[in-house]
Design a protein around this nucleic acid. Structure first.
Length: 439
RNA sequence: GGCGAGGUGGCGGAGCGGCCGAUCGCAGCCGCCUUGAAAGCGGCCGUGGGGAAACUCACCGGGGGUUCAAAUCCCUCCCUCGCCGCCA
């Protein structure tokens, strides 16, 4: 959630942000109304509750006096006072109860509306939809396979030749969009994991292996139960969720905590399986492993000060580029448009790798500056002197396995169906320089 | 899954239904003392909401209930620990 004070002092800022995202602007007015109603109802409750407390405190001593009273007149007098107070307190108790119920109901309504408001977009983000990104840079040159004298095979075919990817049996066992990594494929993923973790550690990230099933609070706190909810797997029996990214358990790791500002930034590199329903993507990428229900990913996640967030965002992007550079892949970097941001992101940069058989760039990493949005929801604050305030969180993909594997297989394939192994990866594959079909 | 114990402020650990947002110890912060440090002494020391402020409200694992009044009583759920069972 965003800073409630902005709603009270500068609601136009929120309206503008909603407009740029293509999301509801009217909800801001509903929220202003609900926020006012909430505060009024709470004040009314506070008032009544205070009266009740004051009154209640008189009853105890009076009852004591009643017990001690010896002569009849004094006793009757005290009894009458107690009775009167009790009667008064009793009706007050009913009022308090009613006011409490009302305040709760109104607060709930306001809180629900708050959850509908996405993070304020960064004003530097290009405005528009998916196609309206700004191209930041193209790096490397896509190979000209015609000039090399052979037709590029897609990753499915290469995966079959190398016996590295088995989507047919994946579908047999688990349905569409599931796959097995086998032999070379499995080794490749493990090598990528090691390379990614080595790089992350060198950059000050603490390696983490996280839970992949989380409570609703973690899912909601990271903003995935909003418009992204349809892509989240829910375990009905247990009311828990399968995470779509380790961003969720990493962000929630410090929920309800106050972190000393001197400890920031805190950087984690999380490794987990990721689960996505891929609802609404029927017909898209139905073949291969570009879009699957389950995959593994190394994710970078940072807790830092709001002042540092933008600079850290640039660093995350650079680290992502370093990794893709090390894999010798041609790619481009884009500044994602406002309409295509997740609800918690203020700004997002994607790296898209060139996929030869598709003749286009496809997303392989994504880094978002979520400013204080997640921290507010998850109650993560920093202590700076005697102030406590929300900190900033950021996330970025370091290595989403299937797509990186696709990019490597397709871009580094050779005429005979073998695949050249990028230098940086070789140490993690026993010095091997090329993947060849198993005998 | 069964039985037992327990969940209180950063940690440890008290808390008769009203005087408890909560005793005390440790840690931390400020000051005194000291050439400096330690020890000792004095003070401060949870979070959030509302309010210009005075002040006020909420929070003692979560939710519900009893009561004029709940950290304290009742119900329920969750979690932790121990033992038993089962099992990667």
């Amino acid at each position: 959630m965003i800073d409630p004070n902005i709603l009270r002092t500068d609601p136009d800022r929120i309206r503008e942000s909603q407009r740029r995202r293509g999301e509801s602007v009217e909800v801001v007015d509903l929220l202003i109304e609900a926020d006012l109603a909430k505060r009024a109802a709470m004040q009314e409750f506070d008032e009544l509750r205070n009266q009740q407390k004051v009154l209640g405190k008189q009853i105890g001593p009076l009852q004591g006096a009643l017990k001690k009273a010896t002569d009849e007149a004094a006793k009757a007098q005290a009894q009458a006072e107690v009775d009167a107070l009790m009667a008064q307190a009793s009706t007050l108790a009913d009022d308090v109860k009613a006011a409490d119920a009302k305040a709760n109901e109104i607060s709930e309504k306001a809180d629900q509306l708050w959850l509908q408001i996405s993070n304020l977009v960064n004003l530097d983000s290009p405005v528009g939809g998916e196609e309206d990104f700004t191209l930041i840079e193209e790096v490397g040159t896509p190979r000209d396979f015609a000039a090399e004298g052979f037709a590029a095979r897609d990753h499915i075919e290469i995966g079959e030749i190398l016996d590295a990817i088995d989507t047919v049996r994946g579908a047999k066992v688990s349905g569409s969009r599931f796959f097995y990594l086998k032999g070379i494929g499995a080794q490749l993923e493990i090598a990528l994991l090691n390379l990614a973790m080595q790089q992350a550690s060198a950059n000050g990230f603490i390696p983490m292996i996280t839970p992949a099933i989380v409570l609703p609070s973690a899912m909601e706190g990271t903003g995935f139960l909003g418009q992204a909810a349809e892509n989240v797997y829910r375990l009905e029996e247990d009311d828990m969720y399968l995470v779509g990214t380790s961003e969720v358990p990493l962000a929630a790791y410090h929920s309800d905590e106050i972190i000393d500002v001197n400890q920031l930034p805190i950087r984690y590199a999380g490794w987990s399986s990721c689960f996505r329903r891929e609802a609404g993507s029927y017909g898209k990428d139905t073949k291969g492993i570009i879009r699957v229900h389950q995959f593994d990913k190394v994710e970078m996640f940072v807790f830092t000060t709001p002042d540092e967030a933008e600079a850290e965002h640039k660093r995350l992007l650079q680290w992502e580029r370093d990794f893709v550079d090390a894999l010798e892949l041609p790619y481009r970097v884009i500044d994602v448009a406002t309409g295509d941001l997740g609800s918690s992101a203020a700004r997002k940069f994607d790296i898209e790798a060139w996929i030869p058989t598709q003749g286009t760039y496809r997303e392989i990493t994504s880094t978002s500056n979520t400013t204080e949005f997640q921290a507010r929801r998850l109650k993560i604050r920093m202590r700076d002197g005697d102030k406590t305030q929300p900190l900033a969180t950021l996330n970025g993909t370091l290595c989403a396995m299937p797509r990186i594997i696709v990019a490597i297989l397709e871009n580094h394939q050779q005429a005979d169906g073998s695949v050249r192994i990028p230098k940086a990866l070789q140490p993690f594959l026993g010095g091997k320089t090329v993947f060849t079909a198993p005998a």
